[in-house]
Design a protein around this nucleic acid. Sequence first.
DNA 1: TTTCAGATTTAGAACAAATATAAATCAAGA
DNA 2: TCTTGATTTATATTTGTTCTAAATCTGAAA
Lengths: 138, 138
Amino acid sequence: MDEERIEKLREKGIAPTIQRLVVLQYLEESTTHPTVEEIYEALKGQYPTFSKATVYNTLQVLTQAGLIQELTIEKEKAHYDPRPDIHHHFFCRRCHRIYDVEIDCSVVKRGMVEGHKIEMVQAYFYGLCARCREEGDA
Amino acid sequence: MDEERIEKLREKGIAPTIQRLVVLQYLEESTTHPTVEEIYEALKGQYPTFSKATVYNTLQVLTQAGLIQELTIEKEKAHYDPRPDIHHHFFCRRCHRIYDVEIDCSVVKRGMVEGHKIEMVQAYFYGLCARCREEGDA
DNA sequence: TTTCAGATTTAGAACAAATATAAATCAAGA
DNA sequence: TCTTGATTTATATTTGTTCTAAATCTGAAA
Ligand SMILES: [Mn+2]
Ligand SMILES: [Mn+2]
Ligand SMILES: [Zn+2]
Ligand SMILES: [Zn+2]
């Protein structure tokens, strides 16, 4: 059930509309850090009048509320992550998959770098992923 | 003199045209991690027929050659960094300044994370910079 | 129940960064 | 000097995102 999800939104003062619940559910069930386009394409069939503007609006609302986070790992388009906590990511240049990476960095924990107060962190590793490395070369 | 700069380009097989030298020099003398717009605005007066397309082309060539690097620290627009080596950055939400941050991360040094081969790294810290913190609050 | 007001959704226009295109210019070697 | 390929340039196009204004929905008040 999405009772949990409804509660999650209510706690942040966000009206739990069907559209918002569907976007949040899709994100939470995904592991790929999807883009707006991917979210929209996946959900538009399910809901006839569903609009891309709503996807943008919803993701903005959820991000601002700290329920999800936005990744700028690709220059061209934003990706979205159902996990709002600080964690790192790996982007494969071959298959374009985005992996979560579990590392804990002492600097992040300290909350300060060179006198600057850290409020958010994004760390992106780029290269060739394990899966792609096993297959063909380069 | 820009003899050094000419040599730098030649080593990478890049023809040292005036436009490329001027862009590279501007970048090397900057400390702000400028955008295409900023680079173009700063240089267009200096060179009458200078074009924004050339700035885009040049930055792409220099980035691919590994002479500079591109930062996706802001979703809206790319910033450019004369230092091609791995180092981290801090972005101030108040003044929008981008600071270099000198940290060395053991994961980066190892060159591997969870089976994925690391070829490049971008780590972005966001928050309130030292300068802004001293001044007004929030 | 009906009415109303504010929030939300929606379609499409507008915007901005970046890329693609094709003509003009340049530079080096024959 | 002529030729050829690389580079620059102006402009058009593309793409992701934001803005706008009308339509729709929802919940409270009458
Ligand atoms: Mn993640
Ligand atoms: Mn830097
Ligand atoms: Zn891969
Ligand atoms: Zn600041």
